[in-house]
């Protein structure tokens, strides 16, 4: 069996399990390569349909290319697109002076308020184990408590494609259908399936973004990879971590752990 088919089939299986259990479900779409691939997988899972809302957490600090892409494909793919934004914090001038505070307010709190409002029971997210050591510790079905906290010291067991069943009323579940994918798999799959991607990933003037968040907190890498083939070649030879350009991944202060414990994606 081909490697990409295996990854794809596993993801589809997980998405179907989640949808079977929770009709009140949504998918988080950051418009980056992983969540756009997840969106594509959802379309494959449901034979061209996406039978739940697709949520974009808009920090207000996203690249203009992201907003353009979002509008184009929400329309073309007939998505039920919802925007979550912490307008209150933005009105008070929240910005990346303290990164922990900014990520928490504009991403985590924005999402928390949105879930409270929409009463979603489960969320599909495109995180992968190879992105960060903390994400490698995640379950496929990962519960969050009322306060959104991730109880990483006491995660439920998972075995043989059997996942946690019905969560208690007050808990919501994070579902991670792409934990087993690697960065290079994503690009090979994008190529095979011809999935549209934002231009930010492709090199211009010797620079490209390898991981995309807010324009204030991510830096492009040196690269001449201006096609998918060149990106795949670059990944086959590089020794640099994918999220090296992302401010919230700094090792020393356990920032990622703190963020995720509080409910960060």
């Amino acid at each position: 069996m081909e490697h990409l088919d295996e990854l794809e089939s596993r993801s589809i299986y997980i998405i179907r399990e989640a949808y079977k259990q929770y009709k009140n479900i949504a998918m988080l779409w950051s418009i980056g390569k992983d969540s756009t691939t997840l969106l594509w997988l959802c379309r494959k899972t449901f034979f061209g349909h996406v039978p739940f809302p697709v949520v974009h957490i808009d920090t207000g600090y996203k690249f203009k290319e992201i907003y353009e892409f979002r509008e184009n494909y929400a329309k073309e793919w007939d998505l039920n697109l919802l925007i979550a934004k912490n307008q209150k914090a933005l009105d008070k001038g929240m910005g990346p002076i303290s990164k922990l505070e900014c990520c928490t307010q504009l991403k985590t709190i924005a999402l928390k308020n949105f879930i409270d409002e929409k009463k979603f029971k489960a969320l599909l997210l495109g995180i992968r184990r190879d992105e960060h050591g903390i994400r490698a510790k995640e379950r496929v079905f990962s519960p969050r408590d009322t306060n959104f906290k991730w109880d990483y010291k006491n995660q439920p067991p998972e075995l043989w494609d059997q996942y946690k069943t019905k969560a208690k009323e007050e808990i919501h579940l994070r579902v991670h259908p792409m934990l087993h994918w690697r960065e290079i798999d994503i690009w090979k799959y994008i190529k095979r399936e011809n999935i549209p991607m934002t231009d930010l990933y492709f090199a211009k003037n010797g620079k490209r973004y390898r991981s995309i968040g807010c324009h204030t907190c991510c830096n492009p890498i040196d690269s001449d990879a201006d096609t998918i083939d060149k990106i795949i070649h670059e990944l086959e030879t590089t020794n640099t971590a994918e999220r090296s350009g992302r401010a919230q991944d700094k090792e020393q202060a356990y920032m990622m752990q703190k963020l995720r414990m509080l409910g960060y994606m």
Binding site: A136, Y152, Q257
Partner: peptide
């Protein structure tokens, strides 16, 4: 592999992880 703060401070692995 032991990325959790508690894992490093106590020198134990709490949860399973994967690496490529």
């Amino acid at each position: 592999l032991d990325h959790l703060q508690e894992e490093r401070e106590q020198n134990i692995t709490i949860d399973t992880t994967q690496i490529f």
